[in-house]
């Protein structure tokens, strides 16, 4: 464990807290992509299958349960709970996620760390997480302006993987046999997708944290 990874996990937890607060207190899922939340639920449920046999630390196991529970709760609330479900707009949030899931599944089958079913599913979840934010970014692009809490949610989510990148660099230089090309590649792509958002987020928040983010 190192500070970058710890801050990355805290930033990830913060993104869940912000989103759960927004949809439960704000009673609205406007501006939030259900498609992205469904992808995250698939990512965590598939990646953390090893919860039952790969016990590397209590910290890991606890957060795996938290991430599966939170992502499932978010999908449930936006899909089934009133009044949130009425604030989700399927016409706007219509990114074809099958074009993300399909290629990631093929990539997971072909490029993984070991030829066991779990490793293929694990690699699939890593690739899928890298592109899971796309429906959300497309929704924000369509709306042009990003509501305040949503912008903090996306920023925390981007920061989490950005901090993980620093964690991988740190581990690469401090540990001798540390090699994780799959997560390095996917994590770089994932963080790269946020660059544009971060630029607009920084520009808008310079004048005050509660200003909405404007996307071109």
């Amino acid at each position: 464990m190192n500070i970058f990874r710890f801050l990355g996990d805290m930033s990830h937890i913060l993104s869940f807290v912000i989103l759960l607060l927004k949809i439960t207190q704000g009673k609205s899922a406007a501006g939030i992509s259900l498609r992205t939340q469904e992808l995250y639920m698939i990512v965590f449920c598939s990646r953390y299958l090893d919860l039952f046999w790969n016990f590397s630390s209590l910290y890991n196991s606890f957060l795996k349960v938290v991430f599966i529970a939170c992502s499932s709760a978010i999908v449930y609330i936006i899909r089934f709970k009133s009044p949130q479900k009425d604030t989700w707009n399927p016409e706007l949030d219509n990114f074809p996620i099958q074009y993300l899931i399909g290629p990631c599944a093929v990539a997971g089958l072909l490029i993984n760390q070991d030829w066991t079913p779990f490793e293929m599913i694990w690699a699939f979840s890593i690739y899928l997480e890298a592109v899971a934010i796309l429906p959300q970014l497309f929704l924000l692009q369509k709306q042009g302006e990003v509501e305040n809490l949503t912008s903090h949610y996306v920023a925390a989510l981007g920061a989490y993987r950005g901090l993980y990148l620093m964690n991988w660099v740190y581990r690469y230089f401090t540990e001798d046999d540390y090699l994780q090309r799959i997560v390095w590649f996917a994590g770089t792509v994932q963080t790269g997708l946020y660059i544009d958002f971060f630029y607009h987020y920084y520009q808008s928040k310079r004048g005050g944290l509660s200003r909405p983010v404007k996307l071109p």
């Binding site: 996990d9 090893d50 957060l63 760390q113 070991d114 066991t116 694990w122 046999d177």
Partner: peptide, 10 residues
């Protein structure tokens, strides 16, 4: 170490 043991991150 095996691929499984190397999975110590979330």
């Amino acid at each position: 170490c095996t691929a499984l043991e190397s999975k110590d991150e979330l």
